[in-house]
Amino acid sequence: MAVPVTIGVPNVLVSEWTKLRSLRSTYWTAIVAVVVAIGIAILGCSSFVRHFSPSDLHGFDAASFSVQGLYASQILLGALGVLTISGEYATGMIRTTLTSVPQRRSMLVLKGAVFAAAALVLGEIASFGSFGVGQAILHGKHAGVSLGDHNVLRAVIGGGLYIAVVGLLAFGLGALVRRTAGALAAFFAVLFLPSALIDLLPSSWHDTVMKYAPANAGTQIMAVTRQHHMLTAWNGLGVLVLYAVAITGLAVYLIGRRDA
């Protein structure tokens, strides 16, 4: 039998894509993540319009207001990111994966890339979808903005980018911790603990912690106007990318050393 030379990157990408799309949970999570983002845009913008007074427009960021549902989507897609790899450990699939692709580190990098790409597409759908629906409602009170306005396109595209990077961070935690429950706990801790525990820290640290906490840094990309004491849009997203790459990188390093 003619044996091809080596497993190629496309082989692993196609295989990982098949794995992702062949689980029913992927579809449900994806649908709910998009529906929740758009639903929150409808609820939030309708409420804003209903209780509208002209003074509300002062400092109002209509773009980021309409995509606030992404804060809920990130939890769902983050959980999917964790499960993409921790589910393999939980079911025993990982042994099949590692015997069919023994180049463990490459496998994990490509698996993470496939998931991040899927999360990016879903994030953009959720972001543009909720922006479109939200602005349509806000336009009733002339409170809406359009994609051509200053920084708005960046904020909306940024919403999808933020989801993709958070998804990668969750995937990295799943690969590092390998247990679903532990990895989910770690994911929520990374997202929410810095803000929740800020008051326990010395006050001189507050500004730094708030600035560099993963969620705070990453969400600046969705702000049309730069917020006080926060990083700029791209620097903030860059900081979040560093967290995601560091955690995933550590998991990639360890998967080559640990017993499966």
Binding site: I7, N11, K19, S100
Partner: peptide, 9 residues
Amino acid sequence: LLCVAQSNG
């Protein structure tokens, strides 16, 4: 089976 097959061409 498909995902395993694809990984090895």
